[in-house]
Design a protein around this nucleic acid. Structure first.
Lengths: 209, 209
DNA sequence: ATTATTAGACGGACTGGTCAGTCCACCTTA
DNA sequence: TAAGGTGGACTGACCAGTCCGTCTAATAAT
């Protein structure tokens, strides 16, 4: 009369396990948020026991940060793999905006992870998102400077400010799109957004100073 | 041998109590986040007992949402009181951006509350921030439309898109400023940002189509 | 090829700490 | 003197992280 289920234990490679746990964690964290996520739930979703999860990652916090880091690496690759080979800075800008918006449209749960990171670890210093952003700042600023040197961008405009406006806008667009929930696809409008940033909203003949 | 402190109980008006608790709650919530906030801590900060806090507000969640709503009302007033009386839509836009950025610079903890709201109540539907935003959407769209009718704004540009870009940028700027932690004051750069949005980054003679 | 041995992978019961919310004895004030 | 505002001790639920008996699979021995 022993109808106990055999739990079908399987030994997998450490990398395989780690990947499975990480994937499950990203899913659960982005679905219910850091605090409401129970480690048991992640274990269950990964098809593993709690002990296994704790062998792969030091604890809940470390596991969460690993999911954030993974997402940032994915984002960086998605943008840079296409943008870096381009020659024209203007094309890099245009394509950068496009790829960035597209990435978040295809991986909406990523936004959730970034929100959670900032919300739950306010004392951990700068969120990883901004650490990554900063590591690319110099590269992008040079692109703006090149545009000015080439006489294509207004020389009375600070490249640093332009860069900040671009990155603030992208950040805001992605968050708004996800949080407001009812907006149209931004990535399909990437070209229009680029046009606005390049040429402004006013008619050329109407601004005299 | 009784050196027990007399707790100096004072009966205050319900409104006074409520205000004090709300203020304390906003401070603690924005300092340590929703989850890490202990109701005991809010009570202590408000100079009241836990029971008193629970008489003023139904529970932790209700108290938190009340702080968010209060912050949104303050923001709305700070912007609209100055913007609405203006006649020129372009001036309204310029001043709106300025006041918005200024508000968050003067009330940085407000950003924290908005982050927390979204992070902790993902299933509550749209965050209050976006509910408020939506309630002003129509008004702002009409301002853009007026600009087009007056021939001052490019007629090939969708007012709806322009509006979204403006609001996404503001949202992103405020969050970035707070989260990245090391940016310069945005409100002092409001005019430059406005200039970028109005005229674009490119030299007028360089875009031929 | 088959069986014996064992390191260590595995899962899940258990523990201990943490708080949200309750409850009631006390105190203020009218 | 009584009505009801007040504060803080208490309770019960919840869950991260631990611990250990069980089970797998790689290797050794035959």
């Amino acid at each position: 009369m022993n109808d106990q289920q055999r739990p079908t234990r399987i030994h997998k490679s450490p990398e395989q396990r780690r990947r499975e746990v990480l994937e499950a964690a990203a899913a659960v964290f982005s679905e219910v948020g850091f605090r409401c996520t129970e480690m048991d739930r992640i274990a269950e979703r990964a098809g593993a026991g709690k002990g296994t999860v704790y062998r792969c990652f030091q604890g809940k916090e470390a596991l969460f940060m690993a999911t954030v880091e993974k997402a940032l690496e994915d984002l960086t690759c998605y943008v840079n793999d296409v943008v870096d080979p381009l020659e024209d800075p203007l094309e890099q800008l245009r394509m950068g905006i496009h790829r960035y918006l597209e990435f978040f449209e295809q991986n909406p749960e990523t936004v959730e992870l970034f929100i959670q990171e900032r919300a739950e670890f306010p004392r951990n210093g700068k969120p990883l998102y901004f650490v990554y952003q900063e590591s690319h700042r110099e590269k992008w600023r040079q692109r703006f400077e090149t545009l000015i040197e080439q006489g294509r961008m207004r020389s009375d405009m600070s490249p640093a400010l332009a860069q900040e406006v671009f990155s603030d806008l992208l950040y805001g667009a992605v968050f708004s799109q996800r949080l407001a929930g009812d907006r149209e696809s931004r990535s399909r409008k990437a070209d229009e957004i680029v046009d606005l940033l390049f040429r402004g909203i006013l008619r050329p003949d109407s601004h005299s100073g």
